[in-house]
């Protein structure tokens, strides 16, 4: 949609004006995230640009907030917890979710709509409501596990948060994997069966490699859901299960520390990496399924 040579001045103004408006909106979308990055190198404990920083004086910049992140035991505990909880929750959502998505994509599934509604519900119900419900239920579940099964309190805390996060990630796995299965050629599994492969062999040797991109991107969604989740963990977990977002939330609400900006920068870099991975996977998946990459 280029500008034709016969465009009137009014059309020209509108054409360029519209682009300026769009540019401003893109600026609105990206600027807050970009502004955080240089501020995280601030040598002062402020949330704002110091005169030294504006003069690009090296004195104004430092890595001390990153150092604080990597040495402060509070932040390290939070990082460790996030790295324990998110992968385990992801493994549960991906394994159960992929199986169920394959089941759902069969041609004759009774009560398909009702089952789908139940499986998608953790995504629809606002987090605060899920958190409220889980708060009541998981505290009695935790008491039961501690008192009747005699499990360690800390361990039970992790189990509760991991289960809660796993169920929040499931809708994303279901949605991405069923979407991948839509383009799956059923004659391939029939051909495999025809050549004598059992259902398990067929699944791992034929179906899984083909739907793998969908499974991985579902897994990434589940991972990011857990890694970024704060409301449920605030309600279900206790202080020893404090995750990164939780620590950031405390930091934002109570003691304002620029370490948050250093963490934010690290997380932005991680999300750029994840975004690239998902995009590459999407293209690969479409190529495998014979569609032209969009």
């Amino acid at each position: 949609m280029g500008l034709p040579p016969y465009a009137t001045p009014g059309q020209r103004i509108w054409y360029y004006g519209f682009r300026v408006i769009c540019g401003l909106i893109f600026f609105f979308l990206v600027a807050p995230i970009v502004v955080v990055m240089p501020l995280s190198f601030n040598a002062q404990d402020f949330f704002t640009f110091t005169p030294e920083m504006l003069r690009l004086d090296p004195e104004g910049y430092s890595l001390k907030h990153y150092e604080d992140f990597f040495t402060n035991p509070q932040w390290q505990l939070a990082l460790k917890n996030s790295l324990i909880i998110a992968p385990l929750a992801t493994i549960i959502s991906v394994s159960l979710g992929t199986l169920a998505a394959i089941g759902l994509s069969q041609s004759h599934v009774p009560f398909k709509r009702a089952i789908m509604a139940i499986l998608i519900s953790p995504m629809i119900v606002p987090l605060i409501i899920s958190a409220t419900g889980m708060f009541f239920f998981y505290s009695s579940l935790g008491n039961w596990m501690e008192n009747s099964l005699g499990l360690d309190k800390n361990f039970v805390g992790y189990v509760k948060v991991i289960l809660a996060h796993a169920v929040l990630g499931i809708p994303f796995v279901i949605i991405t994997v069923t979407a991948t299965l839509v383009g799956f050629d059923r004659s391939l599994t029939r051909a495999a069966a025809n050549m004598g492969a059992g259902p398990v062999t067929t699944f791992f040797r034929v179906q899984m490699p083909l739907i793998l991109p969908g499974v991985i991107s579902g897994g990434l969604f589940a991972f990011i859901t857990s890694f970024d989740e704060v409301v449920v963990v605030l309600f279900v977990g206790s202080a020893s299960q404090k995750t990164l977002p939780w620590q950031m939330f405390i930091g934002l609400r109570e003691q304002i520390s620029p370490t948050i900006l250093a963490v934010a920068t690290i997380l932005v870099v991680i999300s750029i990496a994840l975004l690239t991975t998902v995009e590459l996977l999407r293209r690969r998946s479409e190529r495998l399924r014979g569609m032209s990459p969009g």
């Binding site: 199986l99 089941g103 759902l104 599934v109 139940i118 499986l119």
Partner: peptide, 24 residues
């Protein structure tokens, strides 16, 4: 077979999510 594949997840979601909401 389809239900068998869905059942584990369905139970998981019922116990870890639907029951807590019902409890609320």
């Amino acid at each position: 077979r389809a239900l068998g594949l869905i059942a584990p997840l369905l139970f998981f979601v019922l116990i870890t999510f639907i029951i807590p909401i019902g409890n609320m």
